[in-house]
Design a protein around this nucleic acid. Structure first.
Lengths: 360, 360
DNA sequence: TCTTTTCATGTAAACGATTGCATTACCTCC
DNA sequence: GGAGGTAATGCAATCGTTTACATGAAAAGA
């Protein structure tokens, strides 16, 4: 049977109140007493009962993390970032994986985290208005990545900027026929990231005077396989793109595989740029837009800790920069192919510096 | 203020005891009453206080997962597997990332999970004898992956079998000079996986009559970068290997990168085989030993649930099979190079079937 | 009709901490 | 030497459940 605070109190010959204060390092405990308590606790191998403690104090010392996939690189990276900060501040991390649609529904029907966590971190979850409200109604600080929820702390990258940089990079290389592999779902429900990126893609093309062609947008749903299919779809066009912007590295990987299987090469046949700087991107020599992934997790955790400590009263929003990383899958557009009537001018020298270029 | 069980009791005009029973679906509650309680709870948006509940019942409904890295593919897969099973059985998952050595020490010094979880799942952690004992002394069921701890439930693959299959595959391709990129740490502390694989490598070579050469074993510490260095080291040997077995795909990726940067190709110059069947392995066309990763997580969770429900009294051990997946990075050994005195015989036809071969 | 069972419900004591308030002892200062 | 202040400690209520036990009513058996 594990020792309780009463046992410690008896052994140190003080009241349980004093034990509680001594153990938590509160003031108003004499040095002698504190030491006696500490020793007693040590000898009895006492460890506090977190449940009793939270029941009495109302604090749980736990932060819930709700996300759609633990097993994808991006999320596991963010979780690692959150964990490191939380852990350093003596908080626990309760993981909620909402991948399955049924789990998702159940979560919002039963609100199992209510009263169980001091705060919530929500990662890239498509949420209905009612669901957002349900979260807010838990009356704990909520920090959000990707999704926009009013009244919540917020961390994000500048998606418009990142996507624009990617597309501009391709244009600078002389490409005019530029496809995009999008991640957009049917119902975004507040998960605006893919929409923002897609919008940036269209805007930049328009600014460059390139006409809009809906056929050049293929859905890849943020998956490798789907990215591969999307690329196949783009290549089957009568006038296929010479460059493709995939809004996630995973989809770009799929795209590269498709090229590979069709005997084509990047960047000789098609330039490919991704988004994320996934750990595998370097291996595959993929040009991409890097975002600080684990760092965003750390920021979320810090926001939460500040909110909890009262240091941050009002929800804040922090935007972290992205960075263009030029590698081997993007290159100058080839001179016009036979079916073009007017050969396009030889592209000028690539204005982006090579490797690790910081955009903006 | 959230409603408590007392509010529900008042509204349904019963005692809190009855509310508790009705809500948990216990017998001995009349249908009429149960319905009344359910409605009252619904109307008040009541949700139970897990802390009060665990304090009173002694159960926490939470399983702790302790691991060295959340942000590596392997672990995030396992966690996803654990999560799915736990979630389906209404258990929560408390994540403990022990990557940092200091966090590790603190964990065992303070045992923060004591009294906080009903059970523990430990993934591939190098643990000292004292640490193992500390875990066992928590007096909750413990399920372990990779590490061996007496008195604990256990899931694993047959590492000896898997590694042997990998090395045999290379031998069957006619290779005689076979290197290994090992993951072994200085102090394994019970994390025997790399040792077992290394031992299998040596044994199979010996069985094939190939003399042991310590220079052919280079440490890669399960990392990409380190795998890359290990490969560089092997290639710098006076008589470099014609094939390399990396005991993890990540290290194999690093190895491939090194080859690539040196202008060499797999399998033309060096054959490479990995271990894990990492999601990226297919992309890089890496031959590897596949293990069911998420599935092992599910098994661990199921063992724990069985232990908790009393269905499994004694710790059990389940071994899941591995499978050789032949892809493009392994090929027949080239005929002997100039410096060899006697040309080795032309290798016979590859006995392993191509792609998706199941090894035992 | 009078036990004996069975079933539904209530009573109240845990569970193991935290914390507002009261108390005591000891200083300090006039 | 008494008033007032401060620091250390104790008392006891409280947090929101669960659950052993008691109770009473209805059903079953004799």
């Amino acid at each position: 049977m594990a020792a309780s605070i009463i046992d410690v109190a008896r052994r140190a010959d003080v009241s349980t109140a004093t034990v509680s204060r001594a153990l938590r390092g509160l003031p108003n405990v004499s040095e002698a007493t504190r030491e006696r308590v500490l020793r007693a606790a040590e000898e009895l191998q006492y460890s506090i009962s977190p449940h009793a403690s939270s029941l009495a104090s109302g604090r749980t010392g736990t932060v819930g993390v709700v996300l759609p996939f633990v097993n994808r690189w991006f999320y596991s990276q963010v979780v690692a970032g959150i964990d490191s900060v939380l852990r350093a501040n003596d908080h626990d991390l309760l993981l909620y994986n909402l991948g399955d649609e049924r789990v998702h529904e159940r979560f919002f029907a039963r609100m199992p985290l209510r009263r169980r966590v001091d705060a919530l971190i929500v990662l890239n979850l498509p949420l209905s208005a009612a669901e957002c409200e349900a979260l807010v109604s838990m009356e704990v600080p909520v920090a959000v990545l990707g999704t926009r929820i009013p009244g919540c702390w917020h961390v994000s990258i500048d998606n418009a900027e990142g996507a624009s940089t990617a597309v501009r990079h391709l244009i600078n290389l002389g490409h005019r026929r530029i496809g995009m592999i999008t991640g957009a779902l049917g119902d975004p429900r507040g998960f605006t990231t893919p929409i923002v990126r897609q919008h940036a893609y269209r805007t930049v093309l328009a600014q460059a005077g390139i006409p809009y062609d809906p056929d050049l947008e293929a859905p890849g749903y943020f998956g490798i396989e789907e990215g591969a299919s999307a690329m196949a779809q783009l290549l089957s066009l009568p006038d296929p793109p010479t460059a493709v912007f995939a809004e996630s590295d995973q989809m770009a990987f799929g795209a590269l595989r498709t090229l590979n299987r069709m005997g084509l090469k990047a960047p000789d046949d098609v330039s490919v740029i991704g988004f994320d700087n996934h750990e595998t991107a370097e291996l595959l020599d993929l040009t991409t837009i890097a975002q600080p992934v684990a760092h965003q997790g750390e920021l979320l955790a810090r926001q939460i800790l500040d909110a909890l400590s009262g240091a941050s009263e009002e929800p804040t929003r922090v935007v972290v920069p992205t960075r263009l990383v030029v590698r081997g899958t993007t290159g100058a557009a080839r001179v016009a192919r036979p079916q073009h009537r007017h050969p396009s001018p030889r592209p000028g020298p690539e204005p982006d510096q090579h490797d690790r270029t910081t955009a903006r």
